[in-house]
Amino acid sequence: MRRTFRLTTYGYLFPGLFFMGIFTFIPVFMSAYLSLFKWNINNPEPHFTWFSNYIEVFKAPLFWLVLRNNLIYAFTTIPLSMSLALFLAILINQKMGWIRSLYRGSLFYPTMIPMVAAAMLWVWIFNPGLGIFNYYLGFLGFPKIEWLYDMRYALMGIIIMSIWKNFGYYMLIFLAGLQGIPSHYYEAAAIEGATGWKQFRYITFPMLAPATLFVFIVAIISSFQVFDQVFVMTQGGPGDRTNVLVFYIYQHAFRFWDLGMGSTLTTLFILGLLVAIWLVFRVIGRRVYYEV
């Protein structure tokens, strides 16, 4: 089809672009611009300082700790929740009648709960002495852990909670992918003598690639945007061991009122996220049959 230049076409796009421009893109460019300024309580009038904010960010040990925390969060929640989701999706995809919807519902419902409410609930569950988490772990022979109190385990507490909250959604996406695989593939494979693991390796897994890619992207985005749970459960503590990128940005922008620094971190954050997603598409996306 020929490329056209008709006003009506752009008219259709306009409402979406209008709101996007005002509430997403202009702010992003504003951040990039402001990141070149010193602008905080000590410097109430912004003044231009080239890239000194960026240098300051990279020199701050806390920034690297925050980045590390966020990477730990990403590298644990993503594989754990994805493999749990895939595993359960395969189980739930078996023929089992009415009871399936019961399982499905109880595995998926955490997605429907507001993060704030879920976080509140888990603070209560994690309470070292009175919470049910430690109580039942005790039965399994685990030592008492002061989950959210303890520097070594606080991030793990947030990770556990986030997996609980998110894997159900991923599971549904996988389930949709599984149901899209024509059953005659398996029948053919069975005739050839391929069973169990081989079926999974050569049929299920490749056919699930689009779903996997989607879940992966969503998981990356959400693992870098993690905020609400940290805000409610730990406020980044103890000792900044649960401080993550968005929380760190929030601290600079709305707590310290260091607007220059906040903008710098925001810009870095957006760049980093885009690069990560681009990499995923480059490395994995190409091998995936995915009609865009």
């Binding site: 309470n127 070292p128 002061e146 109190y149 303890d150 520097m151 103890p238």
Partner: peptide
């Protein structure tokens, strides 16, 4: 406890 939160220690 080495660490705790402001809101959770009264229930403790």
């Amino acid at each position: 406890p080495p660490h705790s939160t402001w809101g959770s220690t009264p229930p403790d």
